[in-house]
Amino acid sequence: MTITSDRYVRPAGLEAHFNRVAAFLTRHGISLLGTRILAVRGHKSGEWRTNPVNLLTHEGERYLLAPRGHTHWVRNIRAAGGGELRLGRSTEPFTAVELPDEEKVPLLRAYFERWGWEVARFFEDLPKKPTDEQLAGVAPGVPVFRVLPAEGDGRRG
């Protein structure tokens, strides 16, 4: 299975409802397996845009992966260079560094092991335990960002 770099899967049906529930809980300080509210300025409007994301911690580093592909938040974060991760009243400004495809395989594996039940439907052709080659094939369609502390004090809350 090979996925193109312009891949985008729109949320629909139960996923849209699940996202609203996850966002509500996360805004009230309840994280579901690492959920955060991602806040990033729109690349055209400059206004803050938010949506729930799964924050992956892997080998001491933190990452945001976009299993639905090149979404609005991906385009916005590329333009802004970072944003904020929110959980309840806590807000953490961050800088984002996008990773090249060749660095994504171990992160995709860790992400699918943790949230496969939630995101497997975006990758219908992938088996439950994909090979490295299969993960490398989908890597171009899954933007991945390393989350780094923003310059300055790094956290406020």
Rank of each mutant, 00 (worst) to 15 (best):
T2D: 07
T4A: 15
S5Q: 14
R7H: 15
Y8G: 01
P11S: 13
A12M: 02
A12E: 10
A12W: 01
G13T: 02
H17A: 12
F18P: 00
N19W: 02
R27P: 00
G29C: 06
G34H: 09
T35E: 06
T35F: 09
R36T: 04
R36F: 09
I37A: 00
R41C: 04
R41F: 02
G42N: 06
K44P: 04
K44E: 15
G46D: 10
E47L: 15
E47A: 15
R49Q: 13
R49Y: 12
R49I: 07
R49W: 05
N51C: 13
P52M: 04
L55W: 08
L55C: 09
L56E: 04
H58A: 11
H58G: 07
E59P: 01
G60H: 05
E61A: 15
Y63W: 06
L65S: 10
L65Q: 07
A66Y: 08
A66G: 03
H70K: 12
V74N: 05
R75T: 10
R75Q: 14
I77A: 06
A79Q: 11
A79C: 03
A80M: 10
E84D: 05
E84W: 15
L87G: 08
R89L: 15
S90A: 15
T91Q: 09
T91S: 12
E92A: 14
P93L: 12
F94R: 11
F94S: 09
A96R: 05
L99A: 11
P100A: 14
D101V: 12
E103W: 03
K104H: 08
K104M: 09
L108Y: 01
L108F: 01
L108N: 01
Y111K: 02
F112A: 05
E113V: 05
R114T: 14
R114F: 03
W115A: 00
G116V: 05
W117Q: 06
E118Q: 10
E118H: 08
E118I: 04
V119Q: 05
V119E: 10
A120R: 14
A120D: 13
A120T: 06
F122K: 05
F122G: 04
D125M: 10
K129I: 11
Q134D: 08
V138H: 07
V138E: 10
V142N: 14
V144I: 13
V144R: 06
F145R: 01
L148R: 12
A150R: 09
E151M: 07
E151C: 00
R155I: 06
G157I: 00
G157R: 00
